[in-house]
Amino acid sequence: MTEMIRFVIGTAFLLCGLVIFVIEIFGNYHFGYVLNRMQAASIGDSFGIVLCLIGMMFYFGWSLACLKLLFVEIFLWCSSPVSSHLVAKLEAETNEHLDREVRIKNLTAEGKEDDPCKS
């Protein structure tokens, strides 16, 4: 009975993760600009993968494999933002017409006003 409950909960989490990944793929084609596409991709990277790993943890039960999955999640959450940040920085620094693609706003103490791109 416990196995059955674990299987059902695990499958539910995996299916939810799968739905998030499908939305992510759809978003990648829905948006036209690279930074917006990255936003769609980040849905799966941060939340979709968590749901899938939680689902797999339920399959494995309380074991070392479950802890391994937890460590996988910790490393993913630490490394994934770094790679996203580097790709975003590359786009912002190499696109000469960034202000045509996206509005740029300065929220620093000097005044909340629009500011041309100076990257």
Binding site: I23, F26, Q39, I43, S46, F47, K105, N106
Partner: peptide
């Protein structure tokens, strides 16, 4: 993360909901 995922999903899935991308400095 959970709240933002639902917000982002809304922008992706809704064909009528306009989104206004922004780069902000703070």
């Amino acid at each position: 993360i959970i709240k933002a995922t639902f917000t982002a999903c809304r922008f992706i899935l809704s064909p009528t909901l306009p989104h206004d991308p922004l780069i902000c400095r703070f």
